[in-house]
Simulated assay, not measured.
Amino acid sequence: MIPLSILELARVTEDVGPGQAINNARDLAGHAEKLGYHRIWVAEHHNMPGIASAATSIVLAHIAGGTSTIRVGAGGIMLPNHAPYIIAEQFGTLERLFPGRIDLGLGRAPGTDQMTLRALRRSPEASDSFPQDVLELQAYLAPAGREQRIQAVPAAGTNVPLWILGSSNFGAMLAAELGLPYAFASHFAPDMLLQALEIYRHRFKPSHQQARPYTMVGVNVIAAETDAQAHRLATTQQMSFTNMFRGNRGLSQPPIDDIETYWTPMEKAQAMRMLARSVIGSPETVRAGLEALVQETGADELIIVSDVYHHEERLHSIRLIAEAVGLKPA
């Protein structure tokens, strides 16, 4: 099986506050490390009460401090929200503290709404300079030149590996042009997955960081002892998507017995379109689903979202997934 990684959302629930959510993320990372997962990434979101990872670099430091070998990174930093210089300082510092373990995935979406974007003191047009900002950030992470007057201390020379994240052809083309690895967000925006991967591979130009194309595909995976138990656990994520359509980005809710009593037919259609790349079921079902996804996409790596409400059940889910695909424990 190809490498398997985890995208962590630091979910705040009706029973778990932000501090415990972040500690749960650290605990999950420790379990994932022992199970043989390759990396754990944390996403930047703002003004979302149900997600506690807004201060992404701080959360990553907490997670990295509780682990020793698993790669830790951003999946991703929404670069239009920040000055590239500041991100270089933050992730260069992480690399100095945890050498050889830090990844920096970059996206051009704001990761929030327009009102919050104004609170961040960024304009919607900031995303227009995303390609130039990526190059600027890359330069700050490279060794400083002899005459270079502005250095990102202590980032210069760390060469933190960059990734381009995307859910459309734009990210695929940029990753290919810059010769960077590419991660597609098919766990919530699956429509253009195959087209974007084809564009990326066809247009890829080798770089100092990456000699050949490297793709990572996002997928929702929830495992339990039986298909029925897993589908019940999946109602937590389905309710979260339904609430998003209703304009209610609240706390994560515990699973329910019958999701059909929660959403309307239109909400169901919207949610299931976004969650189309989901593998939910027993270990046998999960194994077959992930093998089929790898065969279909040719992915070099999968990054899973296992959005399960109760922490112990989520730990159980990632263990069953690891065993299903034959990960080698550390």
Score class of each variant (00 low, 15 high):
Phe188Pro: 05
Pro181Ile: 02
Ala119Tyr: 14
Asn159Thr: 06
Tyr214Pro: 03
Glu89Lys: 13
Leu79Gln: 08
Ala109Pro: 05
Gln20Leu: 09
Leu197Glu: 02
Asn159Val: 02
Ile321Arg: 01
Asp227Val: 03
Glu33Gly: 02
His62Asn: 12
Tyr85Asp: 11
Ser127Asp: 10
Gly92Asn: 05
Met266Gly: 04
Gln195Cys: 05
Gln209Asp: 07
Leu315Ile: 13
Ile280Asn: 02
Met272Lys: 09
Arg39Glu: 11
Leu193Phe: 10
Met115Val: 15
Ile6Met: 06
Glu198Asn: 09
Leu320Pro: 00
Ala269Met: 14
Ile86Ser: 11
Arg203Asn: 15
Ser168Thr: 15
Glu125Gln: 13
Val12Ser: 00
Ala155Glu: 01
Ser53Gly: 12
Val42Cys: 14
Ala330Tyr: 00
Leu141Ser: 02
His202Glu: 14
Leu302Asp: 02
Leu293Cys: 04
Trp41Ala: 07
Val325Lys: 01
Pro124Ser: 08
Ala10Asn: 12
Phe188Ala: 09
Ser57Val: 10
Arg319Lys: 15
Gln270Ala: 13
Asp257Tyr: 06
Glu225Trp: 02
Pro80Cys: 07
Gly111Trp: 03
Gln20Asn: 06
Gly111Glu: 03
Arg26Asp: 01
Tyr85Pro: 11
Pro131Trp: 13
Glu313Arg: 13
Thr261Tyr: 00
Val294Leu: 12
Leu141Asn: 01
Ile87Pro: 02
Ser278Cys: 06
Ala228Glu: 14
Ser53Thr: 14
Leu251Cys: 00
Phe241Tyr: 15
Ile303Asn: 00
Leu106Ala: 09
Met1Lys: 09
Gly289Leu: 04
Thr261Ser: 15
Gln237Ser: 08
Arg201Asn: 11
Gln238Leu: 10
Gln138Gly: 04
Gln138Asn: 14
Thr236Met: 00
His231Arg: 15
Ala196Ile: 03
Gln253Phe: 02
Gly145Thr: 11
Gly30Phe: 09
Ile6Glu: 04
Tyr214Phe: 14
Arg203Val: 03
Arg201Trp: 05
Leu320Val: 03
Gly298Thr: 06
Trp163Met: 08
Arg212Gln: 14
Ile86Lys: 12
Trp41Met: 11
Ala176Gln: 04
Leu79Asn: 07
Arg201Gly: 08
Asp113Gly: 04
Pro3Lys: 10
Asp128Lys: 10
